[in-house]
Nucleic acid binder design. Structure first.
Lengths: 224, 224
DNA sequence: CGGGATCCTTGACGATACTG
DNA sequence: CAGTATCGTCAAGGATCCCG
């Protein structure tokens, strides 16, 4: 992106900032609340650290990101990119087709997404531990523990040692389909594609605290 | 853009389509109603025809554009990109800063934009010809004629021979500032930066048929 | 943890010319 | 008018290692 579009149109100006590889995803991560370099990395695992660093510098230069200490925060201009990212997500949810849909099913990325969307307010006022066993991840990882405390949510890749309250097992793709709103939980369990075990109440209430993607409710095009 | 982001997030999927150099501007042109290759070119004059052709093929492949005969039309998926382009434009209008604002002032591009936004319904029911004399264009062009008929608007780079009804003269940058909503017409005329001559009624009603950029009404950030 | 430095490849893009 | 063809350059970005 060495030359500019040479246009006065504001769409062109926004394009100068956003239409660069990875940039919308970095902004998405920042909008989701990540502030540390390595947290940001987890949201874009296929991006090299050098490139992420470069993008963050660019975003800082154009006034979207504020870098203090080792934290990255969106400026007001950055926060106002939310409608752009949101409309992109809505469009993607409705219209992305086979040839742009990732063939990758990365369980770590999924769990990272899930962990920051857990609604702890809907959970009992004590620690709840959920163990996930996901098959078929492109990154080889298959075991994850969510340690849910009223004040914090932790994602572990190794057994944290606590007693496990709920066990969730299935194929990564099934979980992604649920997460994205393309499949409902009960159906997946009944079809035998997903196994959920644990205290009756906790399991029944699971959909209230284990939320789905923000784009899951987006209606699909009619006739699709 | 040879590899994919490898993510299931719909923002990533939309990025695969949109986050490629020039693509948002091509989509903007299509949303503005251009359907012919050479009309599209006029909206992105700095883009090589080879690259435009390539982008259109890509957009066709991902289901955004429909190519029949020698016309390009947006599909339903393409038309639904409007919220994305709109929110980009709003952001650009509010937050684009010096280092991404084009230093280029291309009068041909401006006039091309203006010509397709004239509101002929607000004009008298006869032909009206406006001659523009714009100084300082980066492309060297300075004379333009808008031939406004109730049924069609034509932009000419050479004198079409008709009697001229209104004369508009000034610097391209002044016109762009007006077009973008950064400056009002009366002020520019009073400051001597713009000269408008013609029948009193036509000139007085000029702002009703000579509309501004769709992003002109966007409010700027407070304190800016 | 939070990056920087280096090397190296590839393909994206600009320029120019040309064709049905 | 509606693109293709060819070519050369440059820089984006992947890989790898390293450092404070």
């Amino acid at each position: 992106m060495t030359t500019t579009y040479g246009q006065f149109c504001p769409v062109a100006m926004a394009s100068e900032v956003l239409t660069e590889r990875w940039t919308p995803l970095v902004v998405r991560e920042l909008l989701c609340g990540s502030t540390r370099f390595n947290d940001l990395r987890r949201g874009v695992p296929l991006m090299s650290p050098a490139l992420l660093s470069k993008r963050l510098k660019t975003l800082e230069r154009v006034g979207v990101v504020d870098h203090v200490g080792s934290e990255y925060h969106l400026t007001e201009a950055g926060r106002e990119l939310w409608p752009v990212i949101e409309s992109m997500g809505i469009w993607g949810q409705r219209w992305a087709r086979g040839d742009v849909i990732a063939k990758h099913f990365d369980a770590s990325l999924l769990m990272w997404d899930i962990h920051r969307n857990v609604d702890t307010a809907a959970l009992p006022d004590r620690r709840v531990v959920v163990h996930f066993h996901l098959r078929g991840s492109s990154d080889g990882k298959s075991h994850f523990w969510l340690v849910l405390e009223p004040s914090a949510v932790d994602l572990c890749l190794t057994d944290p040692g606590h007693d496990v309250d709920v066990e969730v097992a299935g194929h990564v793709e099934t979980m992604i389909d649920y997460w994205m709103g393309r499949r409902d939980l009960l159906g997946a369990v009944k079809a035998g594609d997903l196994a959920i075990a644990g205290p009756r109440l906790l399991v029944r209430e699971l959909p209230t605290w284990f939320t789905r993607s923000p784009f899951a409710p987006v209606p699909l095009p009619v006739g699709a």
